[in-house]
Design a binder for these strands. Structure first.
Length: 850
DNA sequence: GCGATTGA
DNA sequence: TCAATCGC
């Protein structure tokens, strides 16, 4: 960069933010966006440019100039301005707030003024400040401002424009540049110019006549006649172009230099922003920061003084070695001071968790309950993991380390050093921050009245576990291994050679190359030919192998995913203890892992075989309670659709009712086939399926599927209206909400790519339904758990499977428990349609499903 | 539609 | 990491 020699005082850098937004849009071909759908090309290019500027030039004074949304004086002065300046593409508009945020986080002063474009602000400052000025821009619109005191630097082309350089490059001095461009025009800028006049001719004309006015005043002197004719035809366009190029130098901007001093960057904010924008490389380049959160001391026992503080960060993990469960590593912290208790007992943790006198801030409360061996009834607990999840349930990482880095800018030390104390310190600081954010988002009641107390219920469910019949499972495993061996031999015989029949690649070689069967669709990534159920079932007519393979797959899945893990994970009493992940889904549902007990087969032979393995204690039974059609009922409630609400109010078979509606027949005339189709549509609706998904599910073509959906919406107009309203609301607010005000951000509604946008729309529609279902069953779990304990019953919750609760109940308590469960579940929350619960019980889960 | 798990 | 398959 060549710095201006004229001018007084330090150099001032004026950045034309808008020009970079456009430049980035056209400069990089491949699309760039976050995993959640925000296009980031422009922010990325801009950020890289700004970081480079700050690092290489180290400016003391600079200002980022941006446009405002409001129309400028150009709109007001010229009717046809808008016609010549199409609005900024939506893809770019959504990035503008982030550009502002990046600059703010970097401490760069920002200037924007209603009624003025960035160019006008820069022109005003360039003309009125006495300092040397470098305009940092990604286009040439501002070349006319170049002088001995004002240079223009294009960091993307690495080029400095001095007056000499402008003259050399364009053949006209900077002050004549607007005249020059008024003649040549600029298609990328929608500047018409004079048709047929190129740069050479324009420069020659201006050199000969001096200005645009002069050229037209002495038009008859222009030679050759061809150019004269072009000029005469393009007169209007030329003067319009010039008017559009005129800059205001009288914008009311502060002229005191100190307004434009670069401030200290807010690294914490910048880091959070880069993480959100998924700028991984840039994130790694940020200066490492190790904030000291406070002093850490190691103590033998919990100091008394901690209990007199107002708030405590509380962190614990299992101890080392043989006594990991009895001797915990535990740390507590008040602001600025942490105590590490090397060998605390679960009793210590229990006391702290149960001590309602002060706020205890923890990370993953349910895990602490397990360490404490109990969930004491208490007030004043705050779980930052739950809080962070409620604030944004779409993130993937809710680790304490991640939260500390994001909100406190602190990289926590490893656990063999000061790490334990720092974790407690981080919690003490995160507590008020996240509490405030939760309250501000209206998520307080959901956190403190639902999710936090639910942690205790889930802890008890996990600890009790589910009993499995190990003898039965062992026999089943043996039988399955036997059958798999036979199937394997048979498949090798049919294939004519042995191969790895669990490998899709090898299977597709056998099927499509060796046996010459017709290839079907590709795998989702398009790299291989698919061998999924759909393809294999279709091939079953032509060859016996596919059918055998499908059976092999089903049996193998049963053995390796269900039977073997259950045997492995069962404890000495034959009980398996799943872990419910309370922060694992974007919709608010729970998930279950090690083992996942929420996807135990239910249909077909496999379902029966495996569910018979889940049994009750001697003298107890399993009681299953599932919400009937909870999602469609919620759809009826939200949409207020009369037709749908009536069907539920009258206790009708909802799939049959839907079939009658869309086929225009009376309920009696509904055939099983019609009902099946209606059922798929109803399910599709609840899961946010597209017409495309529906067509695949039903094996019909897209047009037909569309017609079915259209027919549905005609019969249930309230549903259509509600869907449109939800999408509109998501567009306006950026998120959707559930019955209990749970939130989920919906990015991508403004995406230019149709698939991305439609995906976002489906998410926006599906989440309130699925998420409210989660709200209701969580509320019901709290109520059922509370009632059972209040009434002194031994019956207990053991599993939750999204719309089903599974309880283990002493035989003599069955009747009373059934009444309680039905009452609490059906009356969980008043909706405009009734909630219905199906109850079933038996010695095992298969019987309890009947 | 979402999430968990298995196996190459 | 991807493909396939289970549940809701």
């Amino acid at each position: 960069m060549v710095l201006p020699k004229a001018g007084e005082g330090p150099v001032v850098y004026l950045i034309d933010g808008t020009s970079f937004v456009y430049r980035a849009h056209y400069a990089i071909r491949e699309p760039l966006s976050t995993s959640w759908g925000l296009p980031t090309k422009a922010v990325f290019v801009f950020t890289r440019m700004l970081l480079r500027l700050l690092k290489e030039v180290r400016p003391e004074y600079l200002v980022l100039c941006l446009d405002e949304k409001e129309p400028t004086f150009r709109h007001e002065a010229y009717e046809d301005y808008k016609a010549h300046r199409p609005p900024m593409p939506e893809e770019l508009v959504v990035q503008l707030p982030y550009i502002r945020e990046v600059a703010e986080a970097l401490g760069v002063p920002i200037l924007s003024l209603a009624g003025y474009e960035a160019d006008d602000l820069i022109a005003t400052l360039a003309v009125r400040l006495p300092n040397p000025v470098v305009i940092v821009a990604g286009d040439r619109d501002l070349l006319c401002l170049v002088s001995e005191r004002v240079h223009l630097w294009d960091p993307l082309r690495e080029k400095t424009y001095t007056p000499e350089e402008v003259e050399r490059r364009y053949g006209v001095p900077p002050e004549r540049f607007p005249d020059f461009r008024a003649l040549t025009g600029d298609p990328s800028d929608n500047l018409p110019g004079v048709k047929g006049i190129g740069e050479k001719t324009a420069a020659a004309l201006i050199r000969a006549f001096g200005s645009l006015e002069e050229i037209y005043r002495r038009l008859d002197e222009v030679t050759p006649p061809r150019v004269r004719k072009l000029l005469s035809e393009g007169r209007e366009a030329a003067f319009l172009s010039r008017r559009l190029l005129e800059l205001s130098t009288s914008a009311p901007v502060p002229l005191e230099l100190e307004h434009y001093r670069l401030r200290e960057p807010d690294w914490t904010r910048l880091r959070a922003l880069f993480r959100k924008l998924e700028f991984r490389r840039l994130l790694a380049e940020l200066p490492a920061e190790r904030l000291s959160l406070g002093e850490v001391v190691t103590v033998e026992d919990l100091p008394r003084e901690v209990l007199s503080s107002e708030r405590l960060g509380l962190w614990a993990r299992p101890g080392e070695g043989l006594f990991a469960k009895e001797l915990l590593s535990l740390s507590v912290a008040t602001e600025g001071r942490a105590w590490v208790v090397q060998r605390a007992s679960p009793e210590t943790l229990r006391r702290l968790l149960g001590f309602s006198g002060l706020e205890r801030v923890v990370h993953d409360l349910k895990a602490l309950y397990h360490l404490a061996g109990e969930a004491p009834e208490a007030e004043g607990l705050l779980d930052v993991k739950l809080a962070a999840w409620l604030l944004d349930p779409t993130r993937r990482d809710y680790s304490l380390e991640g939260l500390a880095e994001e909100h406190l800018g602190a990289r926590l030390a490893s656990l063999d050093g000061k790490g334990m104390g720092e974790r407690a310190l981080a919690l003490a600081e995160l507590g008020p921050l996240l509490r405030e954010a939760v309250e501000a988002a209206g998520l307080g009641p959901l956190l403190f009245e639902v999710e936090l107390p639910l942690s205790a219920v889930l802890f008890r469910m996990e600890r009790v576990g589910v009993r499995v019949d190990r003898a039965y499972l062992s026999r089943l495993a043996e039988d399955l291994r036997q059958e798999l061996a036979e199937l394997e031999a048979e498949i090798y015989r049919l294939a004519g050679e042995p191969f790895n029949l669990r490998s899709g690649r090898q299977l597709s070689r056998i099927l499509f190359q060796k046996l010459g069967l017709p290839r079907g669709k590709r795998t989702p990534k398009g790299t291989d030919f698919s061998t999924d159920v759909e393809v294999l079932s279709a091939l079953a007519e032509r060859h016996p192998l596919p059918e055998r393979l499908l059976r092999y797959r089903a049996r193998h899945k049963l053995l390796s995913t269900y039977v073997e893990p259950l045997l492995r994970l069962a404890d000495a009493a034959g009980r398996v203890h799943t872990t419910f992940n309370q922060t694992g889904t974007a919709t608010g549902r729970l998930s279950s892992e090690e083992p996942n007990l929420q996807n135990i087969p239910i249909k077909g032979e496999e379902g029966e075989l495996i569910r018979r393995a889940f049994v009750a204690e001697e003298g107890w039974v399993l009681l299953s309670a599932d919400y009937s059609q909870i999602e469609l009922r919620l759809l009826a409630h939200f949409s207020g659709d009369e037709n749908l609400r009536r069907a539920f109010a009258e206790g009708r078979d909802i799939h049959a009712a839907t079939a009658a509606e869309i086929f225009g027949v009376s309920p009696k005339e509904v055939t099983p086939e019609m009902r099946r189709l209606a059922k798929v549509i109803n399910f599709g609706l609840a899961y946010g399926m597209s017409a495309y998904g529906l067509s695949k599910e039903l094996g019909i073509d897209y047009k037909q599927a569309q017609a079915f959906m259209e027919r549905y919406f005609e019969r249930y107009p309230g549903v259509r209206r509600w869907r449109e309203e939800v999408v509109e609301e998501a567009r306006k607010r950026g998120y959707v909400t559930t019955l209990l005000k749970r939130r989920r951000p919906i990015p991508g509604l403004a995406a230019p790519e149709r698939p991305v946008r439609e995906f976002a729309e489906r998410t926006a529609i599906n989440t309130p339904i699925q998420g409210s279902g989660a709200d209701l069953i969580k509320l019901a779990m709290l109520k059922v758990d509370r009632r059972l304990r209040a009434e002194g019953l031994k019956a207990r919750l053991i599993l939750q499977v999204h719309d089903e609760l599974l309880l283990e109940v002493p035989e003599e308590e069955l009747k009373q428990t059934q009444e309680i469960v039905r009452e609490e579940m059906e009356g969980v929350y008043p909706l405009s349609v009734p909630l219905k619960v199906n109850l079933a019980w038996g010695r095992n889960w298969a019987e309890a499903k009947a």
